[in-house]
């Protein structure tokens, strides 16, 4: 019997959907190995996050609320999460492979003497954790040989879990982050201001490449507007300053799997494909028909993006009346 502790992801006091993708993995794990799952909500003034999780069948929702946990300082969060796991007897700690999960979870693993599998995409029939390696060119099935296990989950590989009703109890956990975080000071956060859906959660993603240059926004934004899409970018477009770092899709950026993905003026380097090739429908628009993006696209249009994307935007707009 396992007890799985799920680190909830939240932003500005609201639950993030990647938590529910991670829950889907936890439910699979518990269905296979038996046991139950709890949530850990770490932060400050996060009562609303705990409440939002009450209908999802957890044994309990543990809230570690402390002013020193307001920002996800890895040393402090990692310690609190490990302390909580020990106090409730959790043998598995899991969380989304977001930048917070990637930052925090390995530290928890060390404190629990646990091996960690990163960014997993499936639990195999034999109970191994499948994870992409070599930019997704190969899938590695890995086993963790320690009694305690830490697992970060690639959210796009698991459909978000549904609420099951009921009302899980909320329990306060007396967190002690003080020493662990004392040599780190939060200075500032420069957030991308956007009213668009989160890249990780969007049903439609419009992604642009370096070729769009300073017209990056002028080309991608109107199309994203008519489709209520998130905007993404290739690494090259971000490196050259045409798009913010938060937009980067790929092996070392965000991994997305929307219903519909537009790759506009993106060549399709293996590192970019690693971040989007599991999208349901892929549309590639590129003036060079030899680019590798066309090898994964369901629909390819060999054309100049500057000419056809505005036309595409207005046709879709017309359709939607």
């Amino acid at each position: 019997m396992s007890k799985v502790l799920i680190l909830a992801e939240h932003d500005k006091g609201a639950l993030k959907k990647v938590t529910l993708n991670t829950l889907a993995f936890a439910r699979q794990y518990v269905a296979k190995f038996g046991g139950s799952y709890d949530f850990a909500v770490v932060g400050h003034n996060v009562g609303g996050v705990a409440t939002a999780l009450q209908g999802y069948g957890a044994g309990a929702i543990h809230v570690a609320d402390h002013a020193d946990l307001a920002h996800p300082i890895a040393s402090a969060w990692g310690k609190v999460l490990a302390d909580l796991a020990k106090s409730i007897g959790a043998d598995v700690v899991t969380g989304p492979a977001s930048t917070t999960g990637k930052d925090v979870l390995p530290r928890t693993a060390v404190r629990l003497g646990a091996g960690m599998a990163s960014d997993i995409i499936a639990l195999t029939d034999s109970g191994a954790f499948a994870r992409p390696m070599w930019a997704g060119n190969l899938t590695g099935n890995v086993k963790i040989s320690t009694a305690n296990k830490v697992i970060s989950v690639r959210a796009s590989a698991f459909d978000a879990a549904e609420a099951t009703g009921g009302s899980s109890p909320i329990q306060a956990f007396a967190a002690d982050p003080a020493l662990a975080g004392s040599r780190v000071k939060f200075v500032s956060f420069d957030g991308v201001q956007s009213t668009r859906p989160d890249l990780a959660e969007a049903a439609v993603v419009v992604a642009g490449g370096r070729g769009l240059k300073d017209k990056f926004g002028a080309i991608t934004e109107p199309l994203a507007d008519v489709l209520s899409a998130a905007i993404g970018a290739s690494r090259a477009a971000v490196d050259d300053g045409f798009a913010p770092n938060d937009y980067q899709i790929g092996q070392t950026g965000k991994v997305v799997a929307p219903q519909l993905y537009f790759a506009i003026a993106i060549s399709g380097a293996v590192q970019h494909l690693a971040g989007m090739k599991n999208s349901k429908v892929i549309v590639a628009i590129n003036k060079n028909g030899d680019e590798p993006i066309f090898e994964v696209a369901d629909y390819g249009l060999v054309a100049d993006a500057f000419a056809v994307v505005p036309e595409l935007t207005s046709q879709i707009k017309a359709l939607r009346g």
């Binding site: 190969l138 390819g300 249009l301």
Partner: peptide, 28 residues
């Protein structure tokens, strides 16, 4: 001792290339 072991590598199923469309109208 290691804590995590690779027990098997597999090649993920690839994605097939789709079709080329001639213009925006056909794409839509």
């Amino acid at each position: 001792e290691t804590k995590v072991q690779v027990v098997g590598l597999v090649t993920p199923s690839g994605r097939k290339a789709g079709v080329l469309v001639k213009d925006v109208e056909e794409l839509v």
